[in-house]
C-alpha cells in the first residue's frame, strides 16, 4: 500500500498524459497516447530484438565499469599512499577531470571505429576519473592513528591495505562508484545514439528517426527504468557491503 500511495503521482501524470492526447489537447503525432505507448511497450517486451539490444548495451556497460572500478581504485589508493604516484598522476587527473566526458566520443570513433571496443573504452575512460578521485580522497582521509597503530602492531603493507585502508575508505569509494554508474549510463546511451548499430540507445534513436513515436517513447521508458533499477540494486548492494558499519 505504501508503495502505491508513494508512487500515485506518477499514476496521475500518466492519467493526465492519456487524457491530453485523447481529448486532442496535444497532437498525438507529438505525444502519442499513453495507451498506444503501453501497447508498443508490450510488443517490445515480447520481441527478442529488445533483449539482443539490451544484451549489447549491458556488455558495454559492464565491460567499461568492470575495468574502471579496479583500475580507478588502485590508482586512487596509490596516489594517496605514494608521493611518486601522486606527483605523476595527480596533475593529469586534475587537468582531465573537468573535461566533459562526452567529448571523447569522436576520438573513440577515430581510434576504435564503431565496434564494441570503442564504447567500452569510452565508458572506461569516462568513469575512471570520478573513481580515481573518490578513492584518492577516501584513502587520504583514513585516520592516521589507525594506520600508525596497525604499523606498530607489525602489519605488513598488504595487511595495512587490506585490513585498514580499504575498509575505512570503502564508503566513499562505493559512493564514487555510484556516481560513475550514473555517468556510465549517460555515456552508453550517448555513444549508442552516435556510433552504434545495436543497443538500447540505438533503438531509441532508430525509432525516433523512423517516426515510430509510440515505440520510441516505450524504449525511453525502458532505459529510464533500467537506470533507476540499476541504481536501486547498487544501493542495496552498498548497504549490504557496509552493514558492518552500523
Amino acid at each position: 500500500m505504501g508503495v502505491i500511495n508513494r508512487y500515485f503521482p506518477l499514476v496521475l501524470l500518466v492519467g493526465a498524459w492519456e487524457a491530453a492526447s485523447r481529448t486532442g489537447l496535444v497532437d498525438p503525432s507529438v505525444l502519442p497516447s499513453f495507451s498506444s505507448v503501453a501497447i508498443a511497450l508490450w510488443h517490445m517486451l515480447i520481441d527478442p530484438d529488445l533483449y539482443h539490444n539490451a544484451a549489447a548495451s549491458m556488455v558495454r556497460l559492464i565491460g567499461g565499469l568492470g575495468l574502471a572500478v579496479p583500475v580507478g581504485v588502485a590508482l586512487g589508493i596509490g596516489m594517496a599512499r605514494s608521493n611518486a604516484v601522486r606527483t605523476i598522476i595527480n596533475p593529469l587527473v586534475q587537468a582531465i577531470y573537468p573535461m566533459p566526458k562526452s567529448a571523447l566520443i569522436p576520438v573513440m570513433i577515430m581510434w576504435l571505429g564503431l565496434g564494441q571496443a570503442a564504447k567500452i573504452a569510452l565508458i572506461f575512460l569516462g568513469c575512471l576519473l570520478p573513481i580515481v578521485l573518490s578513492a584518492y580522497n577516501a584513502a587520504r582521509g583514513v585516520d592516521l592513528v589507525l594506520i600508525w597503530s596497525a604499523q606498530n602492531a607489525g602489519a605488513s603493507r598488504g595487511e595495512l591495505l587490506r585490513e585498514i585502508i580499504l575498509p575505512a575508505a570503502m564508503p566513499e569509494i562505493l559512493a564514487g562508484i555510484r556516481t560513475a554508474l550514473a555517468l556510465s549510463f549517460v555515456l552508453l546511451v550517448s555513444a549508442e545514439f552516435l556510433m552504434a548499430r545495436d543497443g538500447l540507445g540505438y533503438m531509441i534513436a532508430f525509432l525516433g528517426e523512423g517516426g515510430v513515436y509510440n515505440s520510441m517513447f516505450a524504449a525511453v521508458i525502458i532505459v529510464t527504468a533500467l537506470g533507476f533499477f540499476a541504481d536501486r540494486l547498487y544501493l542495496a548492494f552498498m548497504r549490504r557491503v557496509l552493514v558492518w558499519r552500523e
Binding site: R6, Y7, F8, P9, L10, L12, L13, V30, L31, A182, F185, V186, L188, V189, S190, F193, G201, I204, A205, L207, G208, E209, Y213, M216, F217, V220, V223, T224, A225, G227, F228, A230, D231, R232
Partner: peptide
C-alpha cells in the same frame, strides 16, 4: 512534496539523455 517526491526518486538516477529524441521531436 507529495507530487514531486516519486518523480524525483525516479528521475534522479535515470539517464535523462535518453530523452534526447523526445526533445528533438518536441
Amino acid at each position: 512534496r507529495w507530487f514531486f517526491d516519486p518523480i524525483l526518486s525516479v528521475g534522479l538516477p535515470a539517464p535523462k539523455i535518453a530523452f534526447l529524441p523526445v526533445f528533438i521531436l518536441w
